[in-house]
């Protein structure tokens, strides 16, 4: 188990217990976190699980992930990640995930 904190653009935050082996995207869906849509189910075919993570423990985005991020609907930053590409481990306990400002 690892505690992950999701922070909405307005500042509201929610800390949840994440299951090891799940992705951050699955963790968000399991806890009905707003702002993660995950249209393609983690196949790296959309960028609707986009989030911002400023934490070295999650490593760097792969080239394919960066290509997808380039086309995210919301603002792309240096800390942009696809949450489907990060697997929860005990080592990620305390991770903070910021969600993008919704478009439209």
């Amino acid at each position: 188990m690892a505690k992950i904190t999701f922070v909405q653009p307005g500042g509201a935050s929610q800390t949840v217990e994440a299951r090891e082996g799940d992705s951050i995207m699955q963790t968000a869906l399991a806890h009905s976190i707003d702002g993660i849509f995950a249209e393609c189910g983690g196949a790296m075919m959309c960028a609707t699980c986009h989030c911002y993570i400023d934490d070295d423990r999650t490593g760097a985005a792969s080239e394919g992930e960066q290509d997808m991020l380039e086309c995210a609907e919301d603002e792309v930053r240096d800390t942009s990640r696809l949450s489907c590409q990060i697997t929860v481990t005990e080592g990620l306990d305390g991770l903070i995930v910021h969600l993008p400002v919704p478009v439209e």
Partner: peptide, 9 residues
């Protein structure tokens, strides 16, 4: 094939 950039563009 393995070219997400061209696909997404």
């Amino acid at each position: 094939v393995n070219n997400a950039r061209a696909h997404m563009r």
